[in-house]
Design a protein around this nucleic acid. Sequence first.
RNA 1: GCCCCCCUAGCUCAGACGGUAGAGCGUUUCCAUGGUAAGGAAAAGGUCACCGGUUCGAUUCCGGUGGGGGGCUCCA
Length: 662
Amino acid sequence: MSQISITVDGAKSSVEIDARPTQIFAERKEIIVCKVNGVLKDLWTELSEGDAVEGISISSPEGLSVLRHSTAHVMAQAVQQVFAQTRLGIGPPITDGFYYDFDPERPFNPEDLEKVESAMRKIVKDGQRFRRRVTTEADALKELAHEPYKCELIGLKAGAGDEASVEVGGSELTIYDNLGRDGQPVWSDLCRGPHLPSTKHIPAFKLMRSAAAYWRGSEKNPMLQRIYGTAWPSQDELTAYLDLLAEAEKRDHRRLGTELDLFSFPEEIGSGLAVFHPKGGIIRRAMEDYSRKRHEDEGYEFVYSPHLTKAALFEKSGHLQWYSEGMYPPMIMDEELHSDGTIKRAGQQYYMKPMNCPFHNLIFASRGRSYRELPLRLFEFGTVYRYEKSGVIHGLTRARGFTQDDAHIYCTKEQMVDELDSLLTFVLNLLRDYGLEDFYLELSTRNPEKSVGEDADWAEATEALRKAAVAQKLELVLDEGGAAFYGPKISVQAKDAIGRTWQMSTIQVDFQLPQRFELEYSATDGTRQRPVMIHRALFGSIERFFGVLTEHYSGAFPPWLAPVQVTAIPVAEAFVDYLAGVVKAFKSAGIRIDLDASDDRMQKKIRNAQMQKVPYMLIAGEEDQLAGKVSIRYRNGEQKNGIAVVDAIAEIQSAIRDRKQV
RNA sequence: GCCCCCCUAGCUCAGACGGUAGAGCGUUUCCAUGGUAAGGAAAAGGUCACCGGUUCGAUUCCGGUGGGGGGCUCCA
């Protein structure tokens, strides 16, 4: 038998001429796909003299994608088994799983998913081999004549690289057949591959939910039914993933908002409009107060502006031209009509503000400005109203009325570099003070087709942002062409306690508004110059940041933010008076403390305080009373007994002052 | 905005060929005076989201409106 020389994972090797990677990696169960000369291939692929073969583990990013994409195929096969009249869309792998879009006779319901899932288990058990088959456009169109969406993809093959690339891709058109035990195809799908060697290489999967999605992502296209699933290299990893989802659900700010009595969305007010209850109010005020103080230290000046304005302001800023669909419709005031209903005197149109910047520009322009005043930093907790589409509203993180911690910095071009650098440092340190630790930065650059301004200005501002970002020594992701039309921006992405990423702060350079508002300052040489304008919000919106922090802390806020910092619990009613005195001392030390004098038993009181996630419990009974002391029970169940009241106050005060988590 | 699903007590949820409803927690009152995550008893609490239609009769079936959820799209 003749042999060929190849390299396997870098080591020279000699194999039979018709050997396949399945045989080469037969001993290594984790290898489910391979790279041949750097290109991802099935393990069934043919090898040639001199090929460099590299085994890809199911746990690697590429391996996971292949696992998930193959699972999507299994799902599609199962769906067509259970619902024969269903047409196929596309089925790519995504983060943590996969989906497949279908055009079924009727939308799926949860019982349908169960049926599909058990059909899938059977297919996995069958161990169907995935076979790659090269075909031609004509043959594929004939073979897939009953699959209109697939035919459309074949037609799009030329434009590979978009979302259709998983299905068609590269230079060859391929179909994958699933082979039954007898080696005959039981199911086929247009696909670029590669795939697992067989369906039995799917160790663990679960269907998650069904939802609707537009064909190829466009509103103009028909709506398909999408089924989401997840697949993992082991049952343990699947379980861990499901646990993470359960954990995320437990810390959902909408749920905690009700459980901890923080806020609500009364139907009477309207969708996306929150009210903060007293406990939520305390947290929010603590957040705002600290932010205010830090901004003061940083040289910001505080301004206020109304929630309403005449249309002219947003015409000047340009918002009415390109943002009107996101604004609440105008209120028309002082209009007078003739008796026939025609207009006698045109009214004034007033809008709720969706942004604060035009107001700050008016403050800047209210009098002549000197270079000596720059950088001028105007800060406002400005409440804005945006008519978000009903389908996108989500608790506090996506609302229709919200308050931005908004500031606009007006500076000279020369000051821009330093200003951006110190600004970014300020932003990150402030976020750290709120307990977020893990960040990366995203730099959005110009889209030449959709932007205004001079090339040189863009280049300068982008470079200034980039320098500022690099100075932070954080991971920097480039969002090429992702900037708004009026200037480049940096956004800070923060990871929360369970590893989810949230876009937090944005810092945006603006070339457009200073021009539209004809902002000027007098320079050292007496000439009038246009300032650079920087928009920045640290929280984005206070409501959103509140929601993110609630989920980050799972409602167990650090003492400085906790609505109730201490609950005092008497062992029995007889000690209420003693504790009342202690509580008074805590209150005069500025600590938010409640005395639980209800007729519950102390065990119940501890449980209640625990469920409300109060950071400290102060417990006192006879021993404590006689000694003039208290016991501190911490949120984690630990306890310190026999603490002098002054010491307890000092300890809790310092934790609050240092914004420590306990 | 689009597709699907949901809305029953303050909260979490049962329930009924169409004949106006239950539990646990919470609340109130009483009893119990208890050292580390639920002591006991009783009571109050509902136009079954709202508006129409079908029906002898609708919380239940149908339609609309509002609100919520999961996605799509969008997020300047």
